[in-house]
Every structure is written in structure tokens, then in C-alpha cells.
Design a protein around this nucleic acid. Structure first.
Lengths: 332, 332
DNA sequence: CTCCTCTGTGTAATCGTGTGCACAATTCAC
DNA sequence: GTGAATTGTGCACACGATTACACAGAGGAG
């Protein structure tokens, strides 16, 4: 039981020990299969004694079902994704699904990594990263039925997707800032090449347009605190903007710190700063960010629902749309 | 190539298409095996055309080598672990190893989950969580040769471990605070039941004892910002302490916010606050925490080195010790 | 020219489970 | 008491790749 048995015992060996065939061993571990009650109990007892557990690799090969799920993410540490990752991992584990994390900075490495994961016959793929194109995903995981991608607006019959709509929340936030008298707006992107960035900026741009305004300045960071800090200094100093809409909460926190420490400005009077995501840290007392927030639980519920439809074999593409709400803090 | 081939092509089918045997297919994908140059190139071309990739599950079954690594963590979002997780995941992926994340709040669920992962014949296990006892780990993964556990001070021949020594850094920090005139110290634990908490507290307690001092107050949080905030209010209000040593950086940030917002105290003059971990967020301008910090890169280097010794088949237990250094901020 | 080495490929066994089929034993219906 | 339905178990194959062994042919040494 405890101790260092170097090699794991197999079902055939256990069969010999229990005086049955290996088929019967297998049945003892399959909840609904024809097997005598007494036999099963005896087998389970012997199995416990010798520390036997069916080999999931062999089972997967036979089943054509690995119970592995690939999660493609931009980063593990980044708080805006981390909360969702954490929730999803818990939900998967509750379903006896094991998550494999794919996380890569470089683009070609990422594709390579996705190819490697597809080799492991993962049952599902959840793509959190906006750095991978839908076409690449479909090509690489062509065998894993439709894929679940978050955000991307394109239609593709082999992909299930989750759409986010933040236009109403963005409108409310812009409304407040404009009524506070701000006129010059800047948008601070997290990256210049992703559709999610374009999408988010679009919500705010539309809200501004409705009021005859536009973004007077733009900047591009990398979703990090440091980049938020640095770019905000430039935007305030050089472009004299009165409001900065940031691509995520972490950059917004950096921007707020820059306003306070470098330029001695306070929010929301001197400058308005808005984040996006609604991470827990945004609600910390030291931050108290105004942000366009997405309900993470609802988001993950949606992912899990898509996975379940998948498992149930309901085919065709599926799509779920979620709407954002504002979180009002002291920065706008 | 692109498109929705529902079923993945097998090596036997590809063999027929290429006019060779399936053994030759296999050889074409094994870098150093006896095969004609021309044959290999032809096979690889046909494979590309039909989107063939060897099935890693089948290969694992045959090889007795899954190239999967189980990472047991307390939480994914928690910044103090996240940076290390991120680093490790990258390093593993560079070695073509795939990480499976095991993350569970409840204790019995966690053991269940570890049993499930062991079923997948993982090649290595890295335990970041201080919530799992070494004995449980050895019992569950008895087949995975020695396991890698971080921190735990116990000796066990089936486990490789990484030890952390923060006593010297703690001494330097306490020295500074005492010279600043502080007399009443409190320790704010992240959990009351783990050896890592005892270990960390011990470093500071020892440094205090050397100076004839002791912790006058104690509190227990849960490593979260909120718990740091709440407990710090009590410690300052009720116990009138002049310094709080926190179990991690996130609680220290909460404590610092509590001092500033609830009690109107400023650091380090009114109160000294010390964190532990040295996460990136501690260095953000809005936090600027004094903290006992561990070099994450060195830490992960050590983990990877243990994994490599493992792979090389060097058996016996291995142990690596790392020392912490202070990071000086404006909170102590 | 003969023998020997080396290269390239096919055959067949193996890794550990799951499951359709066959068959014996038991139970049930009438 | 006989035929039919049900239950419990074993046999054998499949899942998809790797690899030891065998063998044919090419090339080199003498």
C-alpha cells in the first residue's frame, strides 16, 4: 500500500491475484456493467490492497476519449485571465476532466505547442488567447470537433464561441465622464494586433461618436502595469487628455499610479481612468477602479455549457452572448 | 489539410497511402532510427498532406512515458504562486512536457484529484501546495519515482525537495525595524495549519528572540487581500502593534491599505509592514512593499534541475536549498 | 569471387484496457 | 417440468504506436 513499488500493477496481474479474468477487473471499475455484486467487492478489495488503479492512458486509447482539455492562454499570472482560469479548472475537475495549460509568449511556439497538445487527443479545446487565429485553431484541432473560442466575432461552423457585448456599459461610463466635463479622450490598447482590442475600443468609440466626440489620442501597451504607467505619463503630459480608457484593469492601475505620483493629478477630478475586465483587484481599496466588468462566473458557466453540448454530441456551431456592466469606483 | 476530417488518420492507413509498412511510418518520425533519407522525406510529405501526426496516447502506452507533468497548486490566480507557475510552464513546454494543473480548495477533493492524475501515468509531479502531506504524495504517486515537493523540511527517500532559507533576510529586516524604534510585533499567518507558515514565522521569531523580543500578537488570515485588511485593523486597533509581519505580499498590501484608510497611519513611521514572496506587484509604485523575497527564477531553475536529474535516472533523494533576500520598500 | 558488414524495410509482439460475442448458470413464467 | 429470459464470466480482438528480430540487397575487403 505505502512503499515504493516501482512498477504499477496491471489488470492482468490483478486478475490472476483475484482469480478472475482481466475483463472482469475492467468491469469492476465500470459503474454500470454486468458483474456480480460479490465479485466486484472482492476485486475492489484486492485492488485496494495492491494499489491498483486502471491505467488512464490505455483506457483513453481504447475509448477514443482522453478526458483531457487543452486551455490556450496568454499568461498564467495575468490577473484578468487568472480568475477565469481558476474557475474553469475547478469546474473541469468536478467533471473528472484534466486541464492541460498551453501558455506561450512567442507566436510560432504557440502553434507548435497546440500541435503537440492535439497529438494527445484532447477532448476539448478552450482558447482564451486572442493571439491565435480561428483558422489556425481549426486546422490544428480539426479532429476535436468544434472548438470553443472566446470573443472572436467571426463565424465558423467548426467553432463554438462566446461573444461579449460591452457597448451598453461603455455608453453608461462615457456618459458619466462627459457629464463630468471631460472633453479629450485617449484609448490605451493592450496590443495593437488583436480583434479583442478592436472590439473593446469599438464600444467606447461608438459611445463617443454618439456624443460627437472621438479619441484624440491613442497608445499601445502590453496589458502590464508598467506599460500602463509609462504610456499614461505620455498621454497626460504630451496629449493633455482628460480621460484614459484602458484595455484592461492592470494597465488602468498603472495609469492611475502614474497620474498620482508623476503628475500629481487625482481621479476623477483631474483625470478619469477606466479599466476593463472587472478583476478582483480592481475592487481593492487601494485601487477602487471604475471598470467595464464582465461577470466571470457567467462567463465560465457559458464555457462549461458549450463543453457539455459538445459532450452530448449536439453538433453544429453554438454561440452564447454575454453583456458587461459598469463597476463604479473612484477613478471616473 | 484544412477542413473537417472527423477522424484522425492512423499510421497504418498512412502506411498504405505511402506504400510502406506502419513500422516505417513510425521510424520516419523518430529522429534517430534506421531509415532511408528518401523514404523519410516521402513519408513526411504524405503525412503533411493528410494531416497525420503520431498519436501521443498510443505512444505513451508503448513507451511507458507520457511526457505529462502534474502540478499541484493551491490556486491559479494567487500572484505569489502564479509567477512561478508561469515560469515553470514555459520551461516544461520547452522540453516538450505538458503540464496538468491540479488545483483544489477542499482537501479530500485534492487527494481524489491527485489519484486521478496518477492514473494518467504522469512522468513527474511538482507539488507547490503546502496543503498536501508528503506521505499522501508518496502513497498516491508511488510509481512516479521520487516526487518533487517544495519547502517541506521532512526527509523522505522517495522525495526530492527544495528548501527555502529566509533566516538571514528576516534578521536584516527585523534589525532595521527595531532600530526604527518599533517594539510590539505581530505575525499575520496565511493559514494556521501548514508547515510553511511555521517555517516562515520561525525565521522572524528567531530574529526577534536574538534581540530579546517576541511576537506580542498573532492573527490568521487566508493569504487574501481582504483577510490582510481585516486582521490588520484588529491587530493595530486592539493590540496596538507597531509592526506586522505578513505571511505573504498580498495580505501585506491589504494590511497597508487598512493602516492608511481605516486608521490613518502611514508607513514606515507609524507602523511597519512586511510581506513575503517578492511578487512583481510588491514593486508596483502604489505598493512599494518591504518584503522578504525569493528569486523566482532561481527557484524554478532548481525545480527544473530536479526534473532533469529525474529524467536522467539519477535516483535517491535530492535536495536544493535557496536563500531569500530582503526587498526594501517604503513600508518598513 | 566470396564472405562479411551495413543499411533499409517488413513481420509480429507488446503496452493495458474496454467490450462484443459466446456460453454456462440461474431465475422466471406458465 | 420445460422453455425463455436474465445474469455473470471468459475469450479474443481492437485501440495506435514502438521495437526486437529477421532478412534482402548493397557495398567493401581480401
Amino acid at each position: 500500500m505505502s512503499g515504493t513499488n516501482k512498477r504499477r500493477i496491471t489488470s492482468k496481474e490483478l486478475a490472476k491475484l483475484a482469480g478472475v479474468s482481466s475483463a472482469t477487473i475492467s468491469r469492476a471499475f465500470s459503474p454500470d456493467s454486468r458483474i456480480g455484486r460479490a465479485t466486484r467487492e472482492r476485486i475492489l478489495a484486492v485492488a485496494r490492497e495492491y494499489g491498483y488503479q486502471p491505467n488512464a492512458i490505455a483506457r483513453s486509447l481504447n475509448n477514443q476519449r482522453s478526458r483531457l482539455v487543452a486551455l490556450v492562454v496568454n499568461a498564467i499570472g495575468n490577473p484578468c485571465e487568472a480568475e477565469e482560469q481558476q474557475l474553469l479548472v475547478h469546474r473541469l475537475q468536478a467533471r473528472q476532466l484534466l486541464p492541460i495549460i498551453l501558455c506561450c509568449a512567442d507566436h510560432s511556439d504557440r502553434l507548435q505547442l497546440m500541435r503537440l497538445a492535439s497529438t494527445y487527443q484532447v477532448d476539448h479545446v478552450v482558447i482564451f488567447s486572442d493571439m491565435v487565429s480561428m483558422q489556425d485553431a481549426v486546422d490544428i484541432f480539426h479532429t476535436t470537433k468544434p472548438i470553443i473560442v472566446s470573443f472572436e466575432p467571426l463565424e465558423n461552423e467548426n467553432v463554438s464561441s462566446i461573444r461579449i457585448d460591452g457597448s451598453k456599459a461603455a455608453d453608461e461610463i462615457i456618459d458619466k465622464i462627459v457629464r463630468d466635463g471631460k472633453k479629450r479622450f485617449a484609448y490605451l490598447s493592450g496590443t495593437n494586433s488583436s480583434w479583442i482590442d478592436k472590439l473593446r475600443r469599438g464600444w467606447f468609440a461608438e459611445a463617443l461618436a454618439k456624443r460627437g466626440l472621438t479619441f484624440e489620442a491613442q497608445a499601445v501597451g502590453d496589458y502590464s502595469y508598467d506599460s500602463g504607467f509609462k504610456e499614461a505619463v505620455l498621454l497626460m503630459h504630451r496629449d493633455k487628455v482628460g480621460a484614459i480608457i484602458c484595455g484592461n484593469d492592470v494597465m488602468a492601475i498603472g495609469a492611475r499610479d502614474a497620474a498620482r505620483r508623476v503628475l500629481g493629478k487625482s481621479t476623477p477630478d483631474d483625470i478619469a481612468i477606466v479599466g476593463q475586465d472587472g478583476i478582483a483587484m480592481a475592487a481593492w481599496d487601494c485601487n477602487d477602479l471604475t471598470t467595464l466588468s464582465l461577470d466571470h462566473v457567467a462567463f465560465i458557466d457559458a464555457v462549461v455549457e458549450l463543453i457539455e453540448r459538445h459532450d452530448a454530441g449536439i453538433d453544429g456551431p453554438h454561440s452564447i452572448t454575454l453583456t458587461c456592466t459598469p463597476r463604479w469606483g473612484s477613478t471616473a
